[in-house]
Nucleic acid binder design. Structure first.
Lengths: 195, 195
DNA sequence: ACTAAAATATACCGATCGGTATTTATTAGG
DNA sequence: CCTAATAAATACCGATCGGTATATTTTAGT
């Protein structure tokens, strides 16, 4: 790995939480140099512009959360347990024990959907991939008789994502983990009612 | 009503959708003068600074949506129907027939929670008021035997808000009204299962 | 160790940022 | 209609914005 490649990764690691908290417009080049200790010349030696840093930061934040989800899902045997891994994982994003700025999908969706087409494209793909992944899980659950055959996999996927993301918004804003627990209690009941 | 009061309202009306779409950091004074046709001097003759415009814009956006919700709720007789008015109202915010930038509560919560304490305080209050309002409706539903007595009003309130806001995020990002319909189908089932 | 290439720092660019002091135009009351 | 008060426009402020050309340092292959 060349020096520039290392620096690129370093810049992304250091700025990803900032973009997640402040958003694209709210994160300045000064924020980036301050977080990395590097100069503007060095940043622009490794990235064409601020957009490229923001896009790379989103990829990094997304991979960070989705790899944790994948790892936790692999530990679970039943489909229903797999569908419920979000509860524990996202709690850490809310109560500060992981400490970033919440879910990058939610943050970037709201931040970019009316302002930044390229970033919007990335988060759009992330949501659709997420939906398809859950839908496939549900299909597997139906095939394995764990979930009733009359259930709509896409509807279930969208409902789960909505509850999770809406729950994150509420819990992060209010700083109330109890709210997260209550909403996730409803999610648990919902998943258990599927079959 | 004095001229200045009219101008203040005019400025808020014209800039509220911009703040809702672009967020606080993403909305510049140039955006404000362009949207109003006024000059910077005139803006600052009516507002102390950009913060004051943003705060007034949030109040305006919030009142706009909540008054529509109140009006629609008053048309409904049963508690369950009252709890389901969000379905039709927010659809208009998503499919463009009302054309703003989505739900101001969601947008401002994500935009301000890590960056703008004053704005965060306003949206925090809005969410808590919203939660309490739904919880009171549920309590009335329990009193009127429409909803089972073992249901937790706060949990129901939080769950409904999470599904609505999460659903808005997904549907607005993907521009798919079908997704909204599917998620709201789950909400309908949820509300009907309450008693 | 030497050197060419790669990477970082320095210094600077015009544009835009939020904000203000002052001047001009408009409003409303007598 | 005149005038004092109010409101809006003009012109300007320093700071910061994203970005770049150039100089300096560091890296890595021989």
């Amino acid at each position: 790995m060349t020096k520039a490649e290392k620096t690129r990764i370093f810049i992304v690691e250091k700025t990803a939480p900032i973009f997640n908290m402040k958003g694209y417009a709210g994160t300045s080049l000064n924020d980036i140099t301050a977080a990395t200790g590097l100069t503007k010349g060095s940043i622009y030696g490794n990235f064409a512009n601020k957009d490229e840093v923001a896009l790379a930061a989103f990829d990094y934040n997304l991979k960070n959360v989705s790899s944790k989800i994948d790892a936790e899902m692999n530990k679970q045997r039943s489909i229903k347990d797999k569908l419920l891994v979000y509860i524990d994982i996202y709690q850490k994003f809310i109560d500060g024990s992981v400490s970033e700025g919440g879910c990058p999908v939610l943050n970037t969706a709201i931040d970019a959907d009316d302002t930044h087409p390229e970033l919007r494209g990335k988060v759009l793909k992330a949501v659709l991939d997420w939906k398809n992944k859950i839908a496939k899980l549900v299909e597997a659950g139906i095939a394995g008789k764990e979930i009733d055959a009359d259930q709509d996999p896409e509807q279930i996927a969208l409902t789960i994502i909505a509850m999770v993301e809406g729950g994150i918004m509420i819990s992060k804003l209010t700083s109330k983990v109890e709210y997260w627990s209550l909403i996730m209690g409803s999610l648990k009941k919902y998943v258990e009612s599927l079959g």
